[in-house]
């Protein structure tokens, strides 16, 4: 599965570009590159549902990003500015944290089943029961709409929330003048 690693490396590079580049549009495009790579990787790990969703969401995300950037500015003028003291401190703290976190994660990764050998204790039940009991051929759909339908309700609610939120946030004035 070398291609996964290649994509991952590509993603890392794109991610670094996205963070470091001065032009925000370019950064968003790099972000899109990461996102589409993720979509491709979803396909590679046998997750077509995810891939579809990831692609469409990515498109929409980028559209929104671009829309915002077009309305404001696409130059990140802070990129070249010097770090202030607190920022340096934060960065140092981040570095220490990152190292520790990374080590901890590497150690934790040793404990979970290695890549490609998922345990599937509960999932096995789903696969067994999905079609007969829930009825959907798409097991993912069975999971999200029957076994774990509440998650989906929640997901829809999150979306609803963010819609209402965005609409609320885009009001021109928040308070009536007395």
């Amino acid at each position: 599965m070398i291609e996964l690693y290649l994509f991952l490396i590509f993603m890392l590079v794109a991610a670094i570009i996205a963070t470091e580049i001065k032009d925000l549009l370019a950064a968003v495009i790099s972000l899109g590159a990461v996102g589409f790579s993720v979509a491709i990787m979803f396909i590679l790990v046998q997750a077509p549902d995810l891939a579809i969703v990831q692609i469409v969401v990515e498109v929409l995300t980028i559209v929104i990003f671009v829309a915002v950037i077009l309305k404001t500015t696409h130059i990140d003028e802070t990129i070249a500015e010097k770090f202030s003291g607190t920022q340096v401190l934060a960065t140092v703290l981040y570095a220490v944290f990152a190292i520790l976190f990374f080590i901890a994660m590497v150690r934790a990764m040793n404990d979970i089943p290695p890549f490609g050998q998922a345990t599937m204790r509960v999932a096995g039940q789903y696969i067994r029961l999905g079609l007969p009991r829930a009825g959907g051929a798409n097991l993912v759909a069975d999971v999200i709409l029957d076994f774990r339908a509440l998650d989906t309700l929640g997901e829809a609610t999150v979306l609803f929330t963010s819609v209402i939120g965005v609409v609320a946030l885009m009001r021109k004035i928040g308070r009536r003048q007395k």
């Binding site: 995810l50 990831q54 929104i64 599937m120 999200i144 963010s162 939120g165």
Partner: peptide, 27 residues
């Protein structure tokens, strides 16, 4: 099959991510 549960979860997570990103952008 591969494990369907993470897929279901990721589906939700993607949407949540979209929601948060949208709100953040709005702010």
């Amino acid at each position: 099959f591969v494990d369907p549960i993470p897929q279901a979860l990721v589906l939700t997570a993607i949407v949540i991510a979209l929601g948060t990103t949208a709100v953040m952008l709005a702010i």
